[in-house]
Simulated scan of single mutants.
Amino acid sequence: MTAVMVVVVAAVVMAPAPAESARAFFVFGDSLVDNGNNNYLLTSARADAPPYGIDYPTHRPTGRFSNGLNIPDIISEHLGAEPTMPYLSPELRGAKLLVGANFASAGVGILNDTGIQFVNIVRIGRQLRHFGEYQGKLRALVGAARARRVRLYEMGARRVLVTGTGPLGCAPAERALHGRNGECAPDLMRASELFNPQLSRVLQELNARHGAGTFIAANSFRVHFDFISDPAAFGFATAKEACCGQGPHNGLGLCTAMSNLCADRDKYVFWDAYHPTERANRIIVSQFMNGSLDYVSPLNLSAALEMDATAAAAASRMQDKVARLADDKPRV
């Protein structure tokens, strides 16, 4: 099994796992990829009340900061796998562990003091410690030898998708609070432009050390900015207004039952003050899967998965050949 990780601050990790034809999927990051961990925490950074989840299959809030599916859910669809469960969910046990786990927590950032106002969230260091706990649970389920196949790079992971930051200043909240005349907030746009090239250089250095294509850089800024700058080209009516919220651009406060709510979520890039709609998430993931080098490098996820499948098939054929030769060896 190969593993994928999403980091938004996200990482999707695919690493070898017990079933050779499957992939374990691990997610680390913030509210863009949290699928319910914060539901189990005493924090205000939660999406556990309507109208969150209005377009989810159950039409109920799940802890995802979306009207429906989020980025990891849609990647799981492309992998042909069920969605990963939140690590803090008591239902993550038994065979569910073999699918992987989602460790993300809304409100976190790269720095430990990011999101301090939310008090009780799972910061990145603790997310990684939770991954270590997950390993212990997996060892108890399948044994130490098989559990070693599901890990981050130094423990066996082979594909890590790392997303840079999107055009932060263009979120409805930032347009409302820091933009001029409804335009994107310039300081945050500059911050994104400074951060993303440095992240790309770090990933290139890691690939030079661990092998080309191990770390895949997703250009979230470019992906998001395409439909923010020309929403009509993608069938959206607006990229300035959030579907759910209040105040200028529906960009103030949380999305609640008392908020303004659009009738057609598919016409909006943003679901709430900061997070994309499910339809926008699907466009984002389509670029991760099939986009050119302008969007994802040094290769897209579809190419990486095809390479992994080819390598796995070759290894399987070699194992079969070795086994046949061993069977044919004369016994004395």
Rank of each mutant, 00 (worst) to 15 (best):
G143Y: 02
R123I: 03
L168A: 01
E154A: 12
R148N: 14
G80N: 10
A104H: 13
L194H: 11
R126T: 03
I216T: 02
M189G: 04
N102G: 08
C170I: 01
G132T: 09
F131W: 12
V202E: 06
A208H: 09
P172L: 06
V99N: 09
T114C: 13
G115F: 00
L203G: 07
R180V: 13
E205A: 14
V160D: 09
K137G: 07
D187H: 06
F103S: 14
V99H: 07
G107A: 11
N207S: 08
N196V: 04
R151C: 12
R151K: 12
E205F: 13
P86R: 04
V160R: 00
R93S: 00
V160K: 00
A157C: 11
P86C: 04
L111C: 10
K137D: 11
R146S: 09
G115V: 00
G156Y: 05
I74A: 13
A191N: 12
M189V: 00
G136H: 04
Y153Q: 15
N196G: 06
R148E: 14
F118P: 08
Y134E: 01
L206S: 11
C170G: 08
P197C: 02
F103P: 05
N102I: 08
I74E: 13
R158Y: 09
R175F: 03
R158I: 05
E77W: 08
V150P: 11
R149A: 12
S192M: 04
L199Y: 01
A144M: 07
V150F: 15
A106M: 14
P186K: 08
I121S: 05
I110Y: 14
L92M: 00
G182N: 03
L128Y: 04
V122T: 15
R151I: 11
N196M: 09
N207I: 11
N102D: 14
E77S: 14
L138K: 03
E205I: 11
A212S: 15
